[in-house]
Design a protein around this nucleic acid. Structure first.
Lengths: 137, 137
DNA sequence: TCTTGACTTAGAGCGCGCTCGAACCCGTAG
DNA sequence: CTACGGGTTCGAGCGCGCTCTAAGTCAAGA
């Protein structure tokens, strides 16, 4: 598989794939006789996992550490696990943080809903003001 | 309140506060006779809300839009509400995305746990291999 | 009076993660 | 033969959100 194909299948651009190889996030790819990169489909699994790490906000420098351990192979599992467990905790914390912010956002939005309700009430005839009222003052 | 005090109370640096004012996220602050910014405590509420927007990943350009509407005052509530509702949806989607990634992360970590379990089993005497086994092959 | 330290402005610089341009090399179809 | 649509390397540039420096002003305390 050539870099263009991998780009299509992975969703990355060829530029980004080369960049990732350059910094060590992707292993150095075999080249064919024209010095073009020649990929095995198995790289897609790794790229997909990198995508998860990225999606969850792992900085590249940490992905590099994980990638290096992976390259090193057997014997690095404990450290890889520790790395992922730490990351998982950070992601969980992030989810909690976002959920907390969502509550605040809900409250703020409710405030605007009430503002608009009052406006609608003022524009409406009296019988609708009573029916439409949210918080009877 | 001077900028240094506001910095302490808001968690932002004085540099950042000035930057926010410069770009329009914070309203132009009144100056005292020494041309120093003089803040009212009420600004803290706004800074805190900006912090929520930032925490939830709203880009500054969107915060600027919201800030501009807020400055404009009455009559902009509907648009402010719409802005926040859109943002809320994006945040909810983000939470879902993170949760999906957490499942993948869990699976990956479980894989390493099993790797280590096998290693432990190999190092252990035979009776422990049986007791400790996770997936009987 | 002198020093200290917090403030002012304008503008340069930085860390991150790409993104792109330039100049060149190939293999294949017309 | 030649044009084209890939590929290659190297290095510069960019958008974001700050972050910091320089040079100056000002008020209060020793």
């Amino acid at each position: 598989m050539k870099i263009g194909d991998l780009a299509k299948r992975s969703g990355l651009t060829a530029h980004t794939i080369r960049y990732y190889e350059r910094i060590g996030l992707l292993p150095y790819a075999d080249r064919n006789q024209s010095r073009h990169r020649d990929y095995d489909a198995s790289i897609l699994t790794w790229i997909e996992f990198l995508g998860r790490l990225k999606t969850t906000g792992m900085p590249i420098r940490d992905m590099l550490r994980y990638a290096a351990l992976r390259e090193e192979g057997a014997g690095t599992e404990a450290e890889r696990r520790a790395l992922l467990e730490q990351h998982r905790e950070r992601v969980r914390a992030r989810v909690d943080e976002l959920n907390a912010c969502l509550l605040v956002l809900d409250t703020k939005i409710d405030g605007y809903v009430e503002t608009e309700q009052r406006k609608t009430d003022d524009d409406a005839p009296v019988q609708d003001r009573i029916r439409g009222r949210r918080k009877p003052a």
